[in-house]
Amino acid sequence: MNHFDVIIIGGGPAGMQAAIRLGNFNYKTLIIEKEKSIGGKLTQWDKLFPDFYSAEELLQNLTRQLNENVSILTEQEVKDIENTSENEWTVKTADGQYSSKALLIASGYDFFNAKRKEEFGYGIYPNVITSVELEAMIKNGKITTLDGRIPQKIAYLQCVGSRDEKVGNHYCSINCCICAVKQSIEVKELLPDVEQYCFYMDLRMAGQHYEELYRTSQEKYHVQFIRGRISEAASTFDNRIQIKAENTLLSTPLKLTVDLFVLMVGMEASETTRFISQKFNISNEYGFLQSKQRYCSDNETEIKGLFLAGTCKRPMTIPKSLKDGDAAANAIFDYLKNR
């Protein structure tokens, strides 16, 4: 039986939350997920800011709430989508074809490919890593350099691939500032002797309890925040990373050698998101999907029966994505009822 009321493309937080709601509304719902399991980027996270809530617990919580109306297909990449008739959507994957009355896109984001900022040496020097890789180490409870040493000094660099007109991303990714604060605290707890430096353009602590956490990271965990851009990174003979930067508050050049250099990578439209935004011609300038109207119909699109949720629209935090999934389910409910 390949016909559903709603198909959701992407089983991340937004897609899952929408599925929970739609299932509760008694709609037959299908989630199509390209990875092995649902959860999206949540699966790569250990604890969430600002309260260190466990990502795994959240995921379990969400999974538990999915009822029998929701089917899940994993490891299925969307090959094509068609708006077959007025009220009918067809989604083709490598293995099959599925149809529905409404389609919800929750195809999310990808991390910025740090190799595109070659000056930071990612992919070239072993001890330059991304925030995602650092999170994996935190999750494992073991932070080492590639050659197995315990790092003495770690530097973080904010806004890698965000707010950078050279790579064409003018926007802020919202999550990374506070994420670096969170990670630096976790790292310090694992490695009490480590010295940490965080390079930023400006720190955006725009959520509840973010500012407090930022304060704690300085007062209690002694993370040093330096306003300045890093111009280049180079490897030393012993595989440490030498950073050249400018402290823009003091207007002085600065050189620093660290054991780990963490790039806080930003968010870009994922490949599926790009594919869909181009296919239906609802792309914004960065390849994210454009909703009908930001204020009152942020889950609808110009196309009937096509809905959006979560970070396929723009960078969002996890709570925001979840709420957006809820909102999308409500919008779909209204649509199906009045159809």
């Binding site: 070659e118 000056e119 070239i124 111009s231 280049e232 990174a233 180079a234 490897s235």
Partner: peptide, 9 residues
């Protein structure tokens, strides 16, 4: 080349 470090490497 100092900002495209893979070249000197």
């Amino acid at each position: 080349s100092h900002i495209t470090v893979s070249i000197p490497e």
